[in-house]
């Protein structure tokens, strides 16, 4: 399938999803769906760096939070419509991703992973001490009661996240099948051999951190409008980092489909579980699933399906 065809098909699936959700006539569906779609974007973004190049980012929450706080900042200085804020969040997080890459990508993978945790704490400390965006007390965002055409505001946010998810997945698929994605895979398999084959590893890794960071920031940008009261402790929670990794690993990291499957499955499971179980139980399940999958099915659900198909063919 050509990228444009795929993108349009994605939009069509999105439109159907939106229509179906409207048919339920229940705004809760949109509240829950928003979180699931946000997971799709975060997992897809994580996978562009983590799955394709093999560099583990534990700081997804930081990039998400930077997107969210960019919105808070502009809410106070120069109010804009949410789609523009998404772009702003993407740009700022992308720049942070680029800087992060410059700082650490000359190092071996493990140091990069540790540095991402460091980045998380440093950024959180900066935000906690920055009173303009609310500091440790947090910031209120007053969202309009309704929007024209759609009615409820949550449906508007849902639609934005849905579009973003389609864009992110299309972009991930495009990268995967391009020369760029081919180079990413070479880096993941053997960085030294990649260099000896002429792959400009540093440049490619910087591209990956920038794109990955930008999408995470975009996922975070509408968040203040979603919860309407943003605290550092709600934006910087490790949960986003764990979810992004777990969803990608459970789905399978080598293709665009893996994170999507992982996020839809795990995200929906979490939304259902959140009705009955405490959030802690919820996260415990995610953590245990992550450990289980990395040990038992290292290539995730997609990997399982592939090996099953290969076995049937024989």
């Amino acid at each position: 399938m050509k990228t444009w065809t795929f993108f349009l098909a994605g939009l069509a699936v999105g439109a159907l999803t939106f229509g179906a959700a409207r048919l339920t006539g229940n705004d809760y569906v949109f509240f829950a769906g928003y979180v699931v779609l946000q997971s799709v974007v975060l997992a897809t973004a994580w996978n562009i760096l983590g799955g394709y190049t093999g560099y583990v980012n534990f700081g997804s929450s930081a990039f998400f939070a930077v997107g969210a706080y960019t919105t808070v900042f502009f809410y106070k200085t120069f109010p804009m419509p949410v789609p523009l804020l998404v772009l702003c969040g993407g740009v700022v997080s992308g720049i942070i991703g680029l800087g992060m890459g410059y700082l650490t990508l000359r190092l071996r993978g493990a140091f990069f992973a540790i540095a991402t945790i460091a980045l998380l704490v440093v950024l959180q400390t900066l935000i906690v001490n920055w009173t303009y965006v609310g500091g440790s007390r947090g910031a209120y965002i007053i969202r309009p009661q309704s929007v024209p055409l759609l009615g409820s505001y949550i449906q508007y946010l849902f639609l934005i996240m849905l579009t973003l998810a389609v864009v992110a997945v299309t972009c991930a698929r495009l990268i995967e099948r391009s020369q760029l994605g081919f180079g990413f895979a070479a880096i993941r398999d053997d960085e030294m051999a990649a260099e000896a084959s002429g792959v400009p590893t540093l440049k490619l890794k910087l591209i990956a951190t920038t794109i990955s960071g930008a999408f995470m920031g975009m996922a975070g940008a509408p968040f203040p409008y979603y919860i309407s009261y943003l605290q550092p402790s709600s934006a910087f929670v490790l949960d986003y980092s764990v979810n992004a990794i777990a969803m990608s690993m459970i789905g399978g990291t080598s293709t665009w489909l893996g994170p999507v499957i992982g996020a839809l499955l795990l995200g929906t499971l979490q939304q259902v579980a959140s009705v009955t179980a405490s959030p802690a139980v919820n996260l415990l399940i995610v953590g245990l699933l992550l450990i289980f999958f990395v040990i038992v099915a290292p290539n995730g659900i997609v990997g399982l399906a592939q090996s099953l198909r290969a076995r049937m063919r024989r």
Partner: peptide
């Protein structure tokens, strides 16, 4: 390399496409 360092997740043919493309 003294110890071969192939790209393990790619096919043998794709291993050679990397230097051609890059």
């Amino acid at each position: 390399f003294q110890l071969p360092r192939p790209f393990m997740t790619m096919s043998v043919a794709d291993n050679l496409r990397i230097p051609l493309l890059y």
